[in-house]
Design a protein around this nucleic acid. Structure first.
Lengths: 179, 179
DNA sequence: GGAAGTTAGTCGTTCAAACGATTATTGTTC
DNA sequence: GAACAATAATCGTTTGAACGACTAACTTCC
């Protein structure tokens, strides 16, 4: 049985089956590395990245409100269970819920003053986080990355949601130009 | 309280604070969309993507073995708890564990014939998955994506692991050329 | 050669995600 | 207008991830 230490001359692990697979694994790996930094920051404020996202969305429509499912649809990552995510935010007093009168099935959610305060307190850290994560890439490279990523997920994006989610669609897209 | 339906003329949600943040959120979103397809495939075979990855790594060193931590270090996503991940694979008879004689602290893990069979059975699906996920991007774009992603995580990659993980390092890197 | 410190792996517990079933309300249809 | 289907949200339960504490085995250093 060969041990790890007994084979120093081969650092490269399993080869990839295809270029597509390599790209996906690179994507996964990169996301994982960046996410670690992400979580560390939000954790210091007693919140998760996903929760922050919900707050960010609600803050953007303030003082308006969104239905539970509307918040879920706009989240970066699909969240199966909005109820419990919002439960936690409500427990902390960061959001408020209110049943709709016309359609008593839907529940409107809005951000509270305390919620706005939390987002504000996080703002500086989030900005610094971004620089730390990807600040070493120049703007042109970042735009290329954004553009390719948008193209990559385009076929897998729900058409109804594609517009609601900021991607390549509503900006002059091009893989190679402008600054 | 404004409802969702009462503001149709603005599909764009919260603006991004910075280009770096936008890139990260795009990365997150794209990963999430692609991962959904991923999980669906592996689920049909009663396995998780992370488990498949472990099997893939072990298959690549067959008939050799790796220590528990060595497997963990090569995984795409950092896994806090190798023990339980391997427990599940062992329960299914896909891997075998064996204590090292010289150093009785380490446990060697190797893939079994059944494990190889499972990976083999998955091969076709995985290949099709890759095409489905990113097959609509041409090779040049895929290479650019891989290259930028490698650069993106480079500063956040543990130097010791950077070589062990396939990235831009061991291939002629360039943002703009060759095919 | 025995105490202190390191390393590899395991286990306990807590927390969030995943999946499905369930309730409450509304819309449809005969 | 009563039965049926559709929709919004919630809840139950199972599973995996996260974090830390813990044990066993080796190393080091007086």
């Amino acid at each position: 049985m060969a041990a790890t230490k007994t084979r120093p001359p081969r650092p490269a692990p399993a080869a990839f089956d295809s270029l597509e697979q390599e790209a996906y694994l690179q994507l996964w790996r990169t996301y994982d590395r960046l996410r670690e930094l992400d979580e560390r920051v939000f954790q210091r404020h007693g919140i998760t990245a996903q929760q922050y996202n919900a707050l960010r969305i609600l803050k953007s429509v303030r003082p308006g409100a969104l239905s539970t499912s509307a918040v879920g649809a706009r989240l970066v990552s699909r969240a199966a269970d909005m109820t419990r995510l919002l439960d936690k935010l409500e427990e902390q007093g960061l959001v408020a819920r209110k049943r709709c009168e016309e359609n008593r099935r839907v529940v409107y959610v809005s951000i509270t003053a305390a919620g706005v305060a939390v987002v504000g307190r996080l703002a500086a850290d989030v900005k610094r986080l971004g620089k730390h994560q990807l600040g070493h890439l120049d703007r042109r490279t970042l735009r290329t990355l954004i553009d390719i990523l948008s193209k990559a997920r385009e076929p897998h994006e729900d058409p109804a949601m594609a517009a609601a989610w900021p991607g390549s669609s509503h900006r002059k897209q091009s893989t190679k130009s402008e600054e």
